[in-house]
């Protein structure tokens, strides 16, 4: 079978049809993502190249590969620093792509995944490159929305750090394929960069507070507001506190309103929300497995 795409570097490379295809593939894999194993990637080897730590992304790729019957080799940061002493990324990729059937790369520098794809003999999946792209996160976000409701014409509020969050930036691009109405809720200093707002045109509205629109929306997507973005700690606590999702706040939302978060969370979402039906972030994290199963099977030609 032919693959729809060889590498997965950025979400923009995918058509709406590709995205829908991956979502429906993931749905097929979901039942076995937790309790069983398939054999379709038996005899295949995945190389996890993580140039910066990311426990969830690495583990969920590893789980996905093993659930499909394949094997995984991990090169962690310590190993990479020793094998790559003086070696360029291009050379590392050339060498590793001789060992494995597919590479997942995570790298602090934007553009690394694209570079890797140029030098790799095997498919490359971007597991996050710096401020650049994290397409598998975007696909699992879309899958969560798709599974828990209707992805078409949704009304979604993006809350928190909209300036630096690459998760939000990728998600916005992908949501525009599905005619989403997007509300932006963020501190002044962390507003969505102007180029993204322009791309979205009329389908995006900046609002001052989540409470104003809570009754209108289907999804709240929360991101972490990081301490490092603020000059002093007091300012950080003041801002972070005012964007915190509480149980009380959700009482005014629709019954099937869902709350998402790419995790890890610090205190953007109050723990009391966890027990409500609105809390979708742990399920969202689990959905990373079937979605990555779909991506792995696709790039290795078993779609």
């Amino acid at each position: 079978m032919m693959s729809r795409f060889r590498h997965l570097i950025s979400i923009e490379e995918l058509s709406k049809g590709d995205v829908e295809y991956i979502l429906s593939k993931a749905d097929e894999f979901e039942d076995i993502a937790k309790k069983s194993f398939s054999d379709i990637l038996k005899g295949k080897l995945l190389g996890n190249l993580f140039f910066e730590p990311s426990t969830r992304t690495r583990m969920s790729f590893e789980t996905a590969m093993k659930r499909l019957g394949g094997e995984v080799i991990n090169l962690n940061t310590a190993e990479i620093s020793s094998i790559a002493k003086g070696e360029t990324l291009a050379d590392t990729i050339r060498v590793v792509s001789g060992y494995v059937d597919t590479i997942v790369i995570r790298h602090p520098k934007e553009g690394s995944a694209k570079l890797a794809a140029e030098f790799s003999e095997v498919p490359v999946i971007n597991g996050g490159d710096g401020a650049g792209q994290h397409p598998t996160q975007t696909l699992l976000d879309l899958y969560t929305i798709w599974k828990e409701g209707d992805i078409n014409d949704i009304r979604i509020a993006l809350v928190g750090d909209l300036k630096y969050s690459r998760t939000v930036h990728s998600l916005i691009k992908a949501l525009s394929l599905f005619n989403a109405e997007i509300y932006l809720v963020s501190p002044e200093a962390l507003r969505l960069p102007i180029q993204f707002r322009e791309e979205l045109g009329n389908n995006v509205v900046e609002v001052d507070s989540l409470e104003d629109i809570i009754g209108e929306i289907n999804v709240i997507y929360v991101t972490r507001i990081q301490k490092e973005r603020f000059p002093d700690l007091d300012e950080y606590h003041r801002v972070a506190g005012s964007y915190r999702i509480t149980r009380k706040m959700l009482e005014n939302g629709e019954e099937n309103l869902i709350v998402m978060h790419p995790l890890p969370r610090v205190d953007e979402i109050s723990p009391e929300v966890d027990a409500t039906a609105h809390a979708m972030y742990f399920k969202q994290a689990f959905y990373g497995v079937p979605v990555r199963m779909a991506i792995l099977s696709e790039v290795m030609g078993y779609g």
Binding site: F37, D39, I40
Partner: peptide, 12 residues
């Protein structure tokens, strides 16, 4: 050996 469309052969 469970043959699941789109998923492959699963031991389950």
């Amino acid at each position: 050996k469970v043959v699941i469309p789109g998923v492959g052969v699963v031991q389950a």
